[in-house]
Design a protein around this nucleic acid. Structure first.
Lengths: 215, 215, 215, 215
DNA sequence: AATGAATGAGAGTTCATTCAT
DNA sequence: TATGAATGAACTCTCATTCAT
């Protein structure tokens, strides 16, 4: 397997609201706030989350928040992009253990479901973005799709799956992963996708891509 | 084609907050509020929409709102269920014109996309539900899935598509429809799904279900 | 004496923040807020006055404030214009009792000093306007000057005072009135301008205008 | 002409908040802060100016401020007294070039107007003092008045102007200068007092003092 | 059925000031 | 001497909701 599918970019060093570089202490506080935000947004949703609740959870004073983030929106956006990077990393880690190309998508799904199970914030936070920060939501899907497209195009060229528009395919795979994760992980009794469901899903996907068991 | 796929139930006559039957005038006012809410929620999202804005748009006094709805949540929930009924009706209307069973899903997708194009509120409002009213969101998906399941089970029995768990299949179809609609209608330049995309999508779906061109 | 020097315009009926006409009850509340604002601004100055303090003084809830005024600025501006109308009315009432034209300015000064003595708000509030709302301050002086100009032009035409630019003269009279009022009323021990001071001032003014005792 | 009218006192060497003498570097920083304060207060007014903005303008850290000034008030007061010294110096410089006693007041006015034109801070800052630091405002006027009184008393004794209470006269001259400067310099199109206006004003003043052209 | 004035809790945000480094 | 992170009280303003008319 050549390179990583979701080749996750490095993050630039964080700055304060005024644009200045942070001391180590500052960076630590900022990180605490970001973690608190994840918890609070996941538990309460964007509206109902409040800056007081975030600073309480981070155990800093209200005013401190504004040293690092300009507004509730801004920390939200940052959190979404942070989650996005972590999902892609999770998917990469799984997918890159594949020994055959055909296994890649399967492992990608598993990475995604695993991450979703461990981070309830994922759905609660990201779906909010639709109205809170539409452009960030777009960005989120696009970044994931990009990774898929790369891998799918390769697979098509190698003749492993039927040739088609890799972008359409990529979005469909995301749509499937998202709704299955929501239905069986977020709303399910267990926090994994049951094996029979996974298998049915995967059968559908491979058939759809033109790599069924018949191939 | 036997019966409707999304057999949409009748709605009971609306009542006021106090539970009493409404006069005709009252029913009209209530309707005005519901329409105003759709506009306002779609334009601003749940948090940013406010009851003043809704009553302003409906051209009634603030107090009047509470004669018909108990809270902001409640009108939101009602709106979601209303949209849900209308989508299912739209999907049914399309699907029921199918002359062959195989055409049903295709037409169902088209009904959905058409509705999405005409009602931008769909995504903006329904995705909000994730945090505003989780149980309503669940209800929304379940009702649509139910229609799919009925039709898919029938088709499997008739041998038109490969046998599998119709529920898993139903959810995947929803997931695909939702994300494709978002990507190409909500975010696309045109407000229809381009033909090539639709075809690629449909090819994937039919292959996945085991009804490809090869059948 | 022909007509009034400071012919004070009528005020339009007050409206709420949303532009709607007020009920009688609303008008009363609005008035209460305006009076409270005068007291509070006079006692504390613009910065140190707060909306809580104003609503407390008016004995209404904080939110009520915003039914009638859009911001602290706005109630301040309104208050300045209100004081301005009242000063001009006070000056008019005095000046219009004059039996000889020569007496008019004397009585105008007295009207002004009397008003200043009774309304400590005058200086505290109006001088603030310099930075809070420069254009309102300008308006304030211009309206008073306009009344002066009318009277002075008349007097010049009648040959009662030496001919000169009535506007320059008007502003000087205001400047004198303002600083004398500040020095002897606002900062003085008594709250009237001592007779000897008033006489000295008036002698200076009449000589300056070319209507000394020598005329 | 005997001595200076506004004989401006020397300022004691500045100290830090802790009362200790400053090093040369400290004195420089303190000076930078004072200059930044003039700019910021003039541009924004007392309330809207903030210590962050002052320290930003002075390019020092927030904490540094408190090494030199105890509070926002304190730097404001110091700034007012600084401006006051500079005005008096400006007036003196002009007045002391007078060759005849009668010319003194004329030149004093010109010095004042020139200073006002060059320092818009003058009005914006000093008028603030009304509520920020009433006693400082009083002090400001009194110091200027003192210079006037000295000169006017001398002139009366010499028979150059009519005898009267020099204090009343002094305050009136200040009032005139202030309002004319505001009307024609601060609010005027040009930043000088137009010649005709100045002449009208000066004619009024000389007549009022009993030194008209008729003398 | 409809109004609109009134409420008050709570939101986001700013800012003078302190203090460890 | 200088820094800049941290504080927390106070501010302006919004809003869902109640209630007398």
């Amino acid at each position: 397997m050549s390179k990583q599918l979701w080749d996750v970019e490095e993050v630039p060093p964080p700055t304060g609201t005024d644009g200045r570089q942070l001391t180590e202490r500052g960076a630590r506080t900022r990180e605490r706030l970001l973690q608190a935000a994840e918890t609070v947004f996941a538990a309460l949703g964007y509206h109902d989350a409040s800056i007081v609740k975030i600073t309480d959870a981070a155990d800093v004073a209200q005013g401190t928040f504004y040293l690092y983030f300009g507004s509730k929106q801004q920390i939200f956006d940052e959190l979404v992009m942070d989650l996005n990077r972590r999902i892609r990393r999770a998917m990469s880690e799984y997918a890159d253990t594949a020994t055959t190309r055909a296994d890649r998508e399967r492992l990608g799904f598993q990475g995604y479901f695993r991450f979703a199970a461990e981070h309830p914030a994922l759905y609660r936070v990201i779906r909010q973005a639709e109205t809170v920060s539409p452009h960030i939501l777009k960005e989120h899907y696009q970044r994931i799709s990009r990774g898929y497209v790369t891998g799918l195009a390769e697979a098509m060229e190698a003749g492993d799956i039927a040739t088609s528009d890799p972008e359409v395919l990529a979005w469909m795979l995301m749509g499937i992963g998202e709704i299955v994760g929501m239905r069986w992980i977020l709303w399910g009794e267990t926090d994994v996708v049951p094996d029979e469901v996974f298998d049915q899903m995967y059968l559908f996907v491979t058939r759809g891509m033109g790599t069924g068991p018949d191939r």
